[in-house]
Simulated assay, not measured.
Amino acid sequence: MEITVNQQVYQVTDTCNVQQMLTIVFEALPKGIAVAINQTIIPRASWADHQISPQDQIVIIKATQGG
């Protein structure tokens, strides 16, 4: 299935959860990120259980330091 993450297209398996998607987008899971699907934040504890659908709008937000 084809998904769009932060306006970039990726190919994933038809049964892909958030954690699997993150390993495709990043070589190693970065710290300090949040995942929103269809404008709803997915808690880190749910990443392994939350399945992605082809029409989902996925945004990955990375925390930065500074003021």
Rank of each mutant, 00 (worst) to 15 (best):
M1A: 14
E2M: 11
E2F: 15
E2A: 10
T4L: 13
T4K: 14
V5W: 06
V5D: 04
N6Q: 09
N6D: 10
Q7E: 15
Q8A: 15
V9F: 10
V9W: 08
V9N: 14
Q11I: 11
Q11C: 12
Q11F: 12
V12K: 02
V12H: 03
V12M: 04
D14A: 14
T15M: 12
T15C: 08
C16T: 15
C16N: 10
N17P: 04
Q19D: 04
Q20L: 05
L22F: 08
T23Y: 13
T23A: 11
I24K: 13
I24M: 05
V25F: 12
F26R: 02
L29E: 05
L29F: 07
P30A: 01
K31R: 06
K31I: 05
G32Q: 03
I33K: 01
A34V: 10
V35W: 03
N38L: 06
N38G: 05
T40W: 00
I41H: 09
I42Y: 04
R44N: 01
S46D: 11
D49Q: 06
Q51Y: 09
Q51G: 04
I52A: 07
I52M: 11
P54I: 12
D56N: 09
D56A: 08
Q57P: 01
Q57L: 08
Q57M: 08
I58C: 09
I58E: 10
I60N: 10
I61W: 15
I61P: 07
K62S: 14
K62Q: 15
T64N: 07
Q65W: 09
Q65S: 02
